[in-house]
Every structure is written in structure tokens, then in C-alpha cells.
Design a protein around this nucleic acid. Structure first.
Length: 586
DNA sequence: ATCGTAGGCGCC
DNA sequence: AAAGGGCGCCTACGAT
């Protein structure tokens, strides 16, 4: 191991250039460690490790390898703009499923050591003895192959030499992970791993940057639903009372009703002559001509604003700079879609006029058209379905092919992807099978795996864990209700798996698109400010609006090619340059 | 008092 | 015969 020296020169010497993986470990106040592709390590004792990383990034543009989100956050907070990374925790979740992805588990998994025996550090007390040291405590790995618990718990960050070894270990872990990905049956799992890693970086930037909001406009919209901002608690209670009374004055006389209690609402409706199995909005919509029901539905909408997207929401999540900030996760625990808190992913359409470009800027919005159906074509390779992706509106050729109207075709296709087999769609399901056999087989195979409790992988190689669930035939001696229950659960797992292969693959393509836009948009000063499953919102200088729109389109085709090079599937996006998010013609 | 669950609803 | 997936966030309620 070397110490200090010029990091850029050292990395050049060990063969690092654009896209070459470089292990890195940083800790404020303790410097940084970096590791080259040949296994050599360099310890750098500096006060500002982020600045060193930034300089290396500018000159060499490597692919940074790190253990987890802490490094990502530290660099983003320091304002360092990283081009490409390999996030070991993110790749571990992709390969192995589950959420836990700390270095001890990742390393034991990669070394194929028993996971039950991963050592943990226990505080010393009267009943435990200090463990005898195994091997050299200055090295992160014990002779038995496991990582030292004290290193995992944070002593890797104590000195530059340790940081260098930690970085070297990260580089080794990434190489092992790449090996596993390459031998998986998925051909493009390595590309997915890279994109998923960089998506995690994008998430840190989204959390730091936020979504530009027009606070006054947001408050105006909220006021329209729930009245002006209450000045006192008594004010708030009175306003709430007034909203409740608008519903209750239509209610039959009798016991007082708490509108926030579904059971009481249901019985109130029954007393008013409305008999419903539950009080969900889509069910009540059918009987909206009843004044009580209409008042209740109006109340629910306002209540949503009052409780979730009201003044409190603004105060909590919109900063003084007018940016709405939440936490972002690059892959949920199920199929791997991005998630966000602070209402970023479920902001009511009514509030979207308040999402607005800053002065001198525009929002460029792009959303993918029929992404799940196109993804189904790509992952199944169904020849007929792939051909129909040439159309801007895929449902047109599909409807023509199976001989039904467009709406029926759409319901049938969505039903097949989500596991719904009743209603209009189910009737034409046999025709879907006839016309698109490979696509339907893929969905059925996933469904079957889900029912049987067999793990599956998405197109990009993400493990969907299904094995922890008991298959129905394994339940011993069930009673009738128990059997019905077990079957219902198995069917639910089937639907889950059926959906996961599509939703998960769509999420992978989306992230490749997003990180491509992130990379190519930098020179236009275009920043992604929102990712919404099939939609990107980019904030850019007004002079770049049309250039960014073109970029989004080009990046989509580049991403599709990278994610699924030989599928021949055509992806489409609806792209517009806007001042407000809501200005899009929809 | 703190926790998990259920019903509900927003978005995709 | 019947069966729609995911997420976050709210409230009420029952268990601990």
C-alpha cells in the first residue's frame, strides 16, 4: 500500500481511465482510500477527501466503487458530481433480493460462507469474553474469510490506511459481483447493475435538489379545498368542524357519526338507504346522485388535502428556497421501482399547477407511452407483439389483431399483466393467447412460479423473492376455510409475480433512461427533478428547452438499446416543454 | 404509551 | 368459481 502522493498520477499509473472501476472509501476528517483495478491501494491523508474525489473525477472519469449510500450522500452533500458508480449494496439487492446489504452480509454472500455464522460484535459484559484476535486486526478480513465486526461497525474509517484497505475490499467485492452477474442467465445484468447504481446516486441528488414549487400557488390551491391557513388550533378545529357539517347535514338523524371511521360511515350510508360492502370511492361513485354520497366524496377529497397535502405538508417539506424535498430510494423491496416520500409520488393532480419552473427556466416533461406493454414485448420476445410496438398507440394494432375495440383490448392486456381474469377483458383472453403466445406464456410462467413459491428474476437480473411463501399443497391437513385462504394467498403470489416481471423490467428500463438523461443533460445544465415510474421531469435553463426535449428522446432510444439491444422494440415518449407541470396536454 | 393492522386514497 | 400489481401516508382501533 502506498501513502499520500498525487492521487491522479497514481491512478494513471495503475491503469485507471474512463469507466475503469476504482474502489473508494472516505471519511470526514480521516482522509480517503482508493484502490485500483490491479488490487493496489493508496491511502491519502487529507482534510477534504471530497475535493480529491472531485479532482480525480474531472480528470479520469472512472467508475467509482463504494459500499453504500453513506459515501453517495457525503459526496452529493459536498457538491461533487460523480458520473458513474458501482454501489455494492444496490447490486447486492439486485442479485440476492431482500433489503439488508451491509458489507458483512455482502462479503459473506460473495465468498459463499454460511450466512448464519456471520460474526457480530457484542459489547463486552460480565458474561462474554473478549474474542481472541484472529489474524491481523489491521486487515478487514479474518482468516476464516468473514469481515471483522469492528471494521464493519465503523473502524474502517479510523485511519487512511484502513480506508485504503476498505476501498480495496470494495473493489474486490465489485469484481466478484460482476462475475455473478455475468454468469446469471440474464445477458444484460451487468448493464443493469451499473444503471441501478447510478440511479441510487441520482436519488441522492433528487433528495438534495428537490422539486421546484410555487409556494403561493400551492397555498391558493389548498385554500380552495380547506379554507385559509388556520391561525390557531381553535381555528383549525372550527374549520374541520365546518367541513364535517357539510356532510353530516345530509345524514339521517341518529347517533353521531365520525366521518373518519369507515365502519360508522358505512352504517350511516345504510341508514340513508345506501347499501355498500365498503365505502371506497370507486364504489360510491355509482351512487353519487345521492346528496349524502356526493357530499361525502367531496369531503374525502378535501380531507386528503387537509391531512396529507395541506399547510402542514408545505411547512414540513417545502424549503425556504421553494424546493419540495423527500427521501428517495432507487429500488423498492418488491420489483425494484423507485420510491419517494413527502408525497412526491402521489401528489394529487389538483396540486400540480404549483410545481413550476424557477425564473429563467423551464420544465421538460417526458412520459413513456404504454411502457408495460412494450416491456412485455421486449422481455418475452413475442414476434407479433414486438411488431405492434412500431405503432405509436399499441392498443390499435392489438385490438385489430384480436378483433375487438380498443378499450376492450386495453382492459384485456392490462388484465393479463395484472392477473385480473374477470370482466370484459377475461372474455378475450383466449384470443390474446392465440395472437401473442410467447408473451402470454411468460406471464403464465411467472404466475406459476409465484404460486409454487419459486424465486424469479426480472429481465435485468433482479431477484424477486417468492420462496419464503408456503405453496398451497404444502399446508398439511387444512380445513376448508384454511384451504381457501391458502389458495387465495397462492393466487395473490401468482398475480404479484406476474406483475413483478413487467413492473420490475419497466423500472429497469426507466432507470437506464433516467441515468442516461442525467449524464447527457449535465452539459445543458439540465437537472432531473422528479422520477415518476414512467415519467421524467427535467429542470433546465429556458434557452435549452427544445434541446432538452430532443435529448430526452435520444436518451430513450439509447437506453432501450442498452437495456435490451436486440429486442427490436420501439419505445415512445410524450415530451413537452412547460412552465408548470400541469401545463402538459393530457 | 407504542406498536401493527385495516380501511381508505393519492399517484404510477 | 374467483382472483389487479406497487408505493407512501392518513385515521381509527385493538393488542401489547
Amino acid at each position: 500500500m502506498e501513502r499520500d502522493g498525487d492521487a491522479v498520477e497514481w491512478l494513471r499509473r495503475v491503469g485507471v481511465g474512463r469507466g475503469v472501476r476504482v474502489g473508494v472509501a472516505i471519511a470526514r476528517g480521516a482522509g480517503l482510500g482508493i484502490a485500483g483495478p490491479d488490487g493496489s491501494e493508496l491511502a491519502v491523508d487529507v482534510d477534504d477527501p471530497a475535493a480529491v474525489v472531485a479532482r480525480i473525477e474531472t480528470v479520469l472519469r472512472p467508475r467509482w466503487v463504494w459500499w453504500s449510500i453513506e459515501t453517495t450522500t457525503m459526496l452529493v452533500d459536498a457538491g461533487v458530481r460523480i458520473g458513474a458508480c458501482w454501489d455494492i449494496a444496490v447490486v447486492h439487492r439486485l442479485l440476492a433480493g431482500g433489503w439488508r446489504a451491509d458489507p458483512a452480509l455482502v462479503w459473506a454472500t460473495l465468498r459463499e460462507l454460511p450466512l448464519e455464522s456471520i460474526p457480530v460484535s457484542r459489547p463486552l459484559d460480565l458474561f462474554t469474553q473478549a474474542e481472541p484476535e484472529m489474524g491481523d486486526p489491521e486487515h478487514p478480513m479474518r482468516p476464516d474469510g468473514y469481515l471483522r465486526p469492528d471494521w464493519v461497525d465503523g473502524s474502517w474509517a479510523e485511519r487512511p490506511e484502513r480506508l485504503a484497505r476498505w476501498a480495496g475490499l470494495a473493489a474486490q467485492a465489485a469484481t466478484l459481483q460482476e462475475g455473478h452477474l455475468s454468469t446469471a442467465e440474464q445477458t444484460h445484468a451487468v448493464a443493469t447493475a451499473r444503471a441501478e447504481s447510478t440511479a441510487e446516486l441520482l436519488c441522492a441528488e433528487l433528495a438534495a435538489g428537490g422539486l421546484p414549487m410555487d409556494r403561493d400557488e400551492a397555498e391558493r390551491i389548498i385554500a380552495g379545498f380547506v379554507g385559509p391557513r388556520p391561525r390557531t388550533d381553535a381555528d383549525a378545529i372550527a374549520a374541520r368542524r365546518r367541513r364535517d357539517d357539510e356532510v353530516l347535514r345530509h345524514a339521517p338523524r341518529g347517533a353521531p357519526v365520525d366521518l373518519r371511521n369507515a365502519a360508522q360511515v358505512k352504517s350511516m350510508l345504510w341508514r340513508a338507504g345506501v347499501d355498500v360492502p365498503d365505502t371506497r370511492a370507486w364504489r360510491l361513485q355509482a351512487v353519487r346522485d345521492h346528496p349524502l354520497v356526493d357530499a361525502l366524496l367531496t369531503w374525502r377529497k378535501a380531507e386528503r388535502i387537509a391531512t396529507t397535502f395541506g399547510y402542514g405538508w408545505i411547512d414540513t417539506f417545502v424549503g425556504t428556497d421553494g424546493r419540495l424535498r423527500g427521501q428517495w430510494s432507487s429500488a423498492d423491496g418488491a420489483a425494484g421501482r423507485m420510491t419517494a416520500t413527502a408525497g412526491l409520488h402521489n401528489m394529487p393532480a389538483d396540486l400540480r399547477p404549483a410545481v413550476r419552473a424557477e425564473p429563467g427556466h423551464v420544465l421538460v416533461r417526458a412520459d413513456l407511452g404504454q411502457i408495460e406493454l412494450r416491456v412485455l414485448a421486449a422481455v418475452s420476445g413475442d414476434r407479433a407483439l414486438v411488431r405492434s410496438t412500431a405503432a405509436g398507440d399499441m392498443y390499435a394494432p392489438v385490438a385489430a389483431q384480436i378483433g375487438v375495440d380498443r378499450d376492450t383490448a386495453k382492459v384485456a392486456v392490462l388484465g393479463a399483466m395484472y392477473g385480473q381474469t374477470t370482466g370484459h377483458g377475461a372474455a378475450v383472453l383466449p384470443r390474446l393467447h392465440q395472437s401473442y403466445p410467447a408473451a402470454m406464456r411468460l406471464l403464465e410462467a411467472a404466475d406459476e412460479a409465484g404460486r409454487a413459491g419459486r424465486d424469479i428474476r426480472t429481465h435485468g437480473g433482479r431477484l424477486i423473492r417468492l420462496g419464503a411463501h408456503t405453496p398451497e399443497h404444502d399446508v398439511d391437513d387444512p380445513d376448508e376455510a384454511g384451504l381457501r385462504d391458502a389458495r387465495a394467498r397462492a393466487a395473490a403470489r401468482g398475480r404479484y409475480a406476474r406483475n413483478a416481471v413487467i413492473q420490475g423490467a419497466a423500472a429497469e428500463l426507466f432507470k437506464v433512461w433516467a441515468v442516461t438523461v442525467r449524464a447527457r443533460g449535465a452539459e445543458l445544465d439540465a437537472r432531473i427533478v422528479l422520477c415518476l415510474h414512467d415519467e421524467l421531469l427535467v429542470h433546465a435553463p429556458a434557452s435549452c428547452g427544445s434541446a432538452v426535449a430532443d435529448l430526452l428522446e435520444r436518451c430513450l432510444h439509447e437506453a432501450a438499446h442498452r437495456w435490451s439491444p436486440d429486442s427490436g422494440v420501439h419505445f415512445v415518449a410524450d415530451i413537452s416543454v412547460l412552465e408548470r407541470w400541469s401545463d402538459a396536454t393530457h
